[in-house]
């Protein structure tokens, strides 16, 4: 077992220009501190990672797209994983940090702390490259392999509880702002308009 931060620090170099969908909670706080970027999209609705990530991956087929997710979130919206299995986006990497609890809401145990096996779930839903890792070294090599090969990839990382503060107060008024910045990030890295009706926006206002 290792911490999310220990794992993510080892692979930070891979993330240049990579859009990352991040489940809110401590995971977002840690990731946003590790890689502050307009390319981080906060998934405020628990479990929407697989669905939003799939959409972004299908829209940008030549670019690796990463979801940083939690076990509780995946369990909340497993049908999104099924659709990933159906669509087979080659560029999607779904990383699930499995700490076996809903950490942000008082550490209530999730199904993975009982009998659920998310790797088996992903495989059963048609994602061939589904792996479990329990050490930072294994995490690093699996993520590097995922970046280097076609997916979809599904990596379940057995992680510890956060060491610091796990609460997260989302700045609600900035939600839309996050979306607009994320869109602009995508348009910038892609060097093209993503929506026909998109307003001609400047690259940076602040």
């Amino acid at each position: 077992m290792f911490t999310r931060v220990e794992g993510l620090k080892r692979v930070l170099d891979l993330f240049d220009g990579v859009p990352v969908m991040v489940t809110v909670g401590a995971c977002w706080v840690e990731w946003d501190a590790l890689r502050p970027s307009d390319g981080n999209f906060a998934l405020k609705t628990l479990g929407s990672g697989s669905s939003v990530g799939l959409g972004v991956a299908l829209a940008l087929p030549k670019r690796k797209v990463v979801i940083l997710d939690g076990d509780g979130a995946v369990l909340m919206n497993m049908n999104g994983v099924a659709t990933v299995g159906q669509m087979q986006p080659k560029n999607l990497i779904h990383i699930v940090f499995d700490n076996k609890v809903y950490e942000a809401s008082g550490c209530i145990r999730t199904a993975t702390s009982f009998n659920a096996d998310l790797v088996a779930v992903a495989k059963g839903l048609g994602i061939k490259s589904a792996h479990r890792v329990a050490t930072p070294e294994a995490f690093e090599s699996q993520v590097r392999a995922a970046f280097a090969s076609d997916g979809p990839h599904f990596i379940v990382a057995e992680t510890k509880l956060s060491e610091g503060d796990s609460t997260f107060a989302y700045a609600r008024l900035e939600e839309t702002d996050n979306k607009h910045r994320f869109m602009r990030f995508l348009e910038k890295v892609e060097g093209r308009k993503l929506r026909e009706d998109a307003i001609d926006v400047k690259t940076s206002l602040r």
Partner: peptide
């Protein structure tokens, strides 16, 4: 800071459409 954003009552954000910056 408790919130994800610093600034308290001195913040701005694109609250409506992309590229439109509003003072909160």
């Amino acid at each position: 800071e408790r919130s994800a954003e610093i600034g308290g009552a001195l913040r701005s954000a694109e609250l409506t459409l992309p590229g439109f910056v509003h003072d909160l």
